[in-house]
Structure formats: structure tokens, C-alpha cells
């Protein structure tokens, strides 16, 4: 039987608008694709397969919209496409459990280190646990060497430390986007991939009830670092910061309803040049 190298892909929207005031996300389904890290994972799998004569299977957990994205993998050279139909927003452990049966038996399972939709990067770790194989996560460098089925890699650790690994399969590896650039598909494969079959598999029922979101705090943008106010001494800077030296008469007291008050504050801030 032909050896297998597997890749896990997650289809995500590569562009989405975010309302800066409400945090509302405006999706752009036309930009559906995969992260550079997922692309790098496929490239490593294709290179590994070239060295060993293995077939590359790409597996994605998601809805039917992922099929078009999977066919991009076929255009690059993947031999098999599998989509596991799973509820959107499923936790990483359930995604890994759904993927596991379809990547079992692969000498290496390649993943991107983290998806672009605020992914936690936990799926590869859960997947290694499900499969009971070694893991090499957060790879910054990969060297396939002579192509005997393993690889060497440099892995990111906490605190800026690094760890060099030698991995022999079976294992789950996750790599960063900068490790490799996915090859440009040939025109012939692009055209062929339009008809590439995607095998649809059902996800297993959740092992335990997924947590339900019962409340959500409003979106809070991260604080911006702004230049310090002018002043040689701390006291000068504090005075500048609180406007203690601003011309008198700038403040005024008004009695308004909440909406009018908000309008008045914005008008005043604009008049003082505090708003862009």
C-alpha cells in the first residue's frame, strides 16, 4: 500500500471588515482560503511525499464552503481530499477527534501552527493525543534531509527559547507560515482540480457537551501606546496629561440627557482637536 502523508487545513476568511465602534465583523466569503501556515504545511507534505513516494491527503473539518479551498490543495498536488462535516465553532478537541480517523496511518501529519481566525493552535496537539503519536509543534525551520520519512526542525519555546528536534514518524507537526511557500499550481492541475472529488465524512458525536456561551462582554480594542506628553519632569508631564495648564474656560457644565450629552462630548473633543 502506498504510504500516506496527511495535511490538516482550515478554511478561513482571509479578509473581514471590523466595525471599530461595535466590533461587528463583516465577513467576506469571497476571500475564503487558508493561512500561510496551512499552505506551508501542504508544501512540506508535498516535499516529504516526493521523497518517499507517498500520497498526500488533505483533510479539513468544516462546511461545504471548504470544498473549493480543498480543491486548491488538489491543484498544488494533493491526491486525496476529505472534508469532515462538523458544526462551526466546535472546540479544538472535537475538531481533532473528527480529523483523527482520516489522518490515522499517515507517517506524518502536517498542520499550520495557528489558523487566522483567532485560532488557539491547539488542534495539532489534540490530534497527536488522539492518534497517540509524537508531536512537533510551532516549527520555525524544517529540514526533510534525505527524505526517509522523518525530519529535523527548530521549534519555538516560551521565553524566546528554541529547541532543535529530530522527528521520526509517525508524528503530528505544525509549522509557521514562513517555513515554506506553497508551490504555484500548474495551469493543467488548476483546471483538473475543478473536478477533483471531495470525500465527505460525518463527524463523530461530541464526546462531552460543548460549553455554551451564556454571556459576552462588549468588544474592547487593545490600548494604544501613545507618545508621552512633553515635559522634563514627571509633574510637568502629569500636568500636560490632565490638561491642568489648558486655557481657563475650556470646561463647561451642561445638563443633558445621555444621547445629547454624548453628542456634546464628541463635539467638544472635536473642537479641541482631540478627535481625528
Amino acid at each position: 500500500m502506498r504510504p500516506l502523508v496527511a495535511v490538516c487545513w482550515k478554511a478561513v476568511e482571509l479578509r473581514a471588515g471590523v466595525d471599530p465602534l461595535t466590533g461587528e465583523i463583516r465577513p467576506d466569503p469571497r476571500s475564503l482560503g487558508v493561512s500561510p501556515a496551512d499552505e506551508a504545511a501542504l508544501e512540506w507534505a508535498l516535499r516529504a511525499a516526493e521523497g518517499t513516494g507517498a500520497a498526500v491527503r488533505v483533510v479539513s473539518a468544516g462546511g461545504p464552503e471548504a470544498d473549493g479551498v480543498l480543491r486548491q490543495a488538489a491543484a498544488a498536488g494533493a491526491a486525496e481530499l476529505v472534508r469532515v462535516a462538523i458544526e462551526p465553532g466546535s472546540p479544538s478537541c472535537e475538531v481533532a477527534r473528527a480529523l483523527a480517523p482520516h489522518v490515522a496511518g499517515a507517517g506524518l501529519v502536517w498542520c499550520g501552527d495557528v489558523s487566522l481566525d483567532r485560532g488557539s493552535g491547539a488542534v495539532p496537539a489534540f490530534l497527536a493525543a488522539e492518534l497517540g503519536v509524537a508531536q512537533a509543534l510551532g516549527l520555525l525551520e524544517v529540514d526533510l534531509g534525505a527524505g526517509a520519512g522523518g525530519f529535523s526542525g527548530l521549534r519555538r519555546l516560551d521565553g524566546g527559547r528554541r529547541e532543535r528536534l529530530r522527528v521520526e514518524g509517525p508524528a503530528v507537526a505544525s509549522c509557521e507560515g514562513g517555513t515554506a511557500r506553497l508551490r504555484r499550481a500548474s495551469l493543467h492541475l488548476m483546471l483538473e482540480a475543478r473536478r477533483a472529488p471531495v470525500r465527505i465524512e460525518a463527524a463523530p458525536p461530541p464526546r462531552r457537551p460543548a460549553p455554551h456561551v451564556v454571556g459576552r462582554a462588549p468588544f474592547r480594542p487593545r490600548a494604544r501606546v501613545v507618545p508621552p506628553p512633553p515635559g522634563e519632569h514627571a509633574a510637568d508631564r502629569v500636568r500636560a496629561l490632565i490638561g491642568a495648564e489648558a486655557p481657563a474656560g475650556r470646561a463647561r457644565v451642561v445638563t443633558l440627557g445621555p444621547e445629547e450629552a454624548a453628542e456634546a462630548i464628541l463635539e467638544a473633543l472635536a473642537a479641541w482637536g482631540e478627535l481625528p
Binding site: 499550481a185 500548474s186 495551469l187
Partner: peptide, 9 residues
Amino acid sequence: RTDRPGGEI
């Protein structure tokens, strides 16, 4: 001619 490998149509 296109910018893809084998890209002549």
C-alpha cells in the same frame, strides 16, 4: 501565455 507553470492556452 500565463504566469503558471505549463501555462500556455
